[in-house]
């Protein structure tokens, strides 16, 4: 179960990622709780395993169209499949890593695992997940936090 302040850490990390990396702010919607173990995914998902003081996963999921525009905003000219996958993993890694500012050093993050076009392969380890909806330009994405 996450406390409100802990959810705020991920909201702030998401906001900071977009404004710093793309110089365009994202609008983050109200986080909501999903209890059926199916928080949902888009085409590309970067998953970070969490161990240590907390256990579970954090993932960022988005469509290719959004990731392509994000790459352009980052002045990256290559939008190959490899780079798109790299980006979705890096977003998840950055937001999860930044959370250690509040969660501390024992919030241990894995290297990213990227899942593309296989929506049912992203499995939440617990029934309860918090979903943080992200709107950036005309695109939608989600950050999902599923911690014990």
């Amino acid at each position: 179960m996450l406390k409100e302040a802990e959810i705020r850490t991920f909201v702030d990390g998401t906001t900071n990622f977009f404004v710093t990396s793309s110089q365009q702010a994202a609008s983050v919607g109200s986080p909501y709780l999903v209890t059926d173990g199916k928080p949902g995914t888009y085409e590309y998902t970067g998953v970070i395993g969490i161990s240590g003081s907390r256990k579970g996963i954090v993932y960022f999921t988005a469509r290719r169209a959004m990731l392509t525009v994000l790459l352009m905003r980052m002045h990256e000219t290559d939008s190959s499949e490899e780079i798109i996958k790299d980006l979705v993993g890096e977003v998840a890694n950055t937001i999860s890593g930044n959370a250690r500012r509040d969660f501390g050093k024992n919030f241990i993050i894995s290297v990213p695992t990227v899942i593309a076009n296989e929506l049912d392969k992203v499995i939440a380890p617990h029934s309860r997940s918090y979903v943080i909806p992200i709107n950036w330009r005309t695109h939608s994405a989600k950050l999902v936090v599923c911690l014990e």
């Binding site: 710093t20 990396s21 890694n93 999860s96 890593g97 930044n98 250690r100 050093k105």
Partner: peptide
């Protein structure tokens, strides 16, 4: 240059011999 934003990690890196720390994301 890391996303790991906790102070303890920065201190550990400096103790091991790093000279500076830049947190991701960065401009």
């Amino acid at each position: 240059v890391s996303a790991l934003a906790d102070k303890a990690t920065a201190v550990e890196a400096i103790e091991k011999g790093a000279n500076g720390f830049l947190c991701k994301p960065f401009t």
